[in-house]
Structures are given as C-alpha cells and as structure tokens.
C-alpha cells in the first residue's frame, strides 16, 4: 500500500517534469482538443520557466507569510500581547471570508499590475491559515508541560523555542500547507494581472478558445498543488510520527 503510494508520487512528479521540459512530446495527446489548426501545445512561452516563476512567486509569498504570521502568533499568545488576541482572531475570521480574487483585485489599484500585486495578495491571504494555526498550536500546549518547563528553570525564551514552538510545529506546518495550496491556485489568477506563471497558459486558452491550453495549464498547476500538498504532509508525518 505504502509502496504503491510512493510509486504514484514519483510517477506524478516524473510526469510533471517531463511535461514541463519536453511538452512537444505530449502534442498527440492534446491535438484532438485544439481545433482549426490551433497549436496543441502552448507556444507563447517556455512552460518550464513559467512553472518556475509560478513556484517562485508562491514560495516567496509563503515564506513571507510564514515569518510574519508565526511572529504575530507568538506575539498575541504572550502575556504582553494578550490585548491584541481577540481582535486578531476576529480579523482572521473576517479575512477568511475574503475571496482570494478580491484580495488580488484590490491590490492592483494600490500597486499596479505585474508580480507585485500577486505577491502581496498571496502574502496577505497566506497569513490567515498560518496565523490561525500558530495561535491554536501555541495555545493548546498542555498546561502541565508549560508549568514543568518553567518549573525546571527555562527562561521564557527557552520555553518558547524548545517547548512551545516544537509542540505547535505540526499545526504550523499544516497551516503552511493549506496556505501553499491556496496560493498555487490564486497565483494562476495572478496571470490576469500580468504576473508570470502557469495561469498565463490557462488564460491564453480561455481567450483563444483553445481547450488544449486550458487543460495543460490546469493539469500542470493541479499536479504541482497535489505534489506540494502531499510533500508537506509527508514531511509532517516524518517529523512528528512520535507524538
């Protein structure tokens, strides 16, 4: 069972890489979908470069949101930041009702077109699940464990770094995983505001009514999202199988 899952994962990864690096080999598969002599494989840019740009944008935004969200989560769970906890939780709840497209659309008038609004929208939207999970993770540390940590002479900082954060880490990682998957999807929409990425392929397909393009962009991003989701989940299991 587990071996089958590994084979499936490696197969999916191989398929994605093959498609991105030598897309022309897949032309016969997509040809039936391209009508009226339209090209079967996206020809307005290098797929591998687009995928790389897509991934870079998502990872950069995610890195930023992780740093900020975890820092904020730590801040509001300290005694000195407790005043900000109710509001920050209400904000996260409110923020999660915000559609990703709206975040993106509202960023454009503020900063203009291109990579920047996408990056900022992804960063902002990515904050929510990570912050939420950081707060829940830090607050759900068993009281006895915290008491024992202080009782043994850990300073507040030692307690945070060697007890609280490691214990909250599985939940924080889960937040990062959710954030990554949402962002891979949202980044495709970024192409409507001229960000580089696989969304370009889909949009091009939608505009020229070429389903082959749409399918290529869709499958590539879908595979990327599934693989990333699965990869982080596997990492979580590997790191935290002990508790």
């Amino acid at each position: 069972m587990r071996r089958a899952a590994t084979v499936l994962r490696l197969g999916a990864l191989g398929l994605l890489l093959a498609f991105l690096l030598v897309p022309q080999r897949f032309a016969p598969l997509f040809a039936p979908l391209a009508h009226g002599g339209a090209p079967a494989i996206y020809d307005q840019g290098n797929l591998a470069m687009l995928a790389l740009a897509h991934l870079t944008t998502v990872l950069a935004a995610c890195l930023g949101s992780t740093v900020v969200a975890v820092a904020l989560g730590i801040l509001v769970t300290r005694a000195s930041g407790a005043e900000f906890l109710p509001l920050s939780r209400a904000l996260v709840n409110f923020g999660q009702t915000f559609p990703p497209v709206a975040v993106l659309a509202l960023a454009v008038p503020l900063i203009g077109f291109g990579e920047k609004p996408t990056l900022i929208a992804l960063f902002l939207y990515g904050l929510l699940p990570i912050f939420e999970n950081t707060v829940v993770g830090l607050r759900s540390c068993p009281a006895a464990v915290l008491e024992a940590a202080s009782g043994m002479g850990m300073s507040a900082r030692q307690r945070l770094f060697s007890v609280e954060l490691p214990l909250a880490m599985p939940l924080i990682l889960e937040g990062i995983r959710i954030s990554l998957v949402i962002n891979i999807g949202t980044a495709t929409i970024g192409s409507t505001v001229a960000a580089k990425g696989l969304g370009e392929v889909i949009i091009a397909g939608l505009l020229s009514n070429n389903t082959a393009f749409v399918l290529q962009g869709g499958l590539a991003t879908g595979l990327m999202a599934v693989l990333l989701y699965d990869g982080v989940a596997a990492l979580e299991r590997r790191l935290y199988r002990n508790y």
């Binding site: 008491e147 009782g151 002990n242």
Partner: peptide
C-alpha cells in the same frame, strides 16, 4: 527539582 501532577513530560 520540581514534579507536578500529570508530570508535564515533553511529548516531543
């Protein structure tokens, strides 16, 4: 030394 009810062992 300090021992409490529930022990507070570090689960990780």
């Amino acid at each position: 030394g300090y021992v409490i009810q529930g022990y507070g062992l570090f689960p990780h």
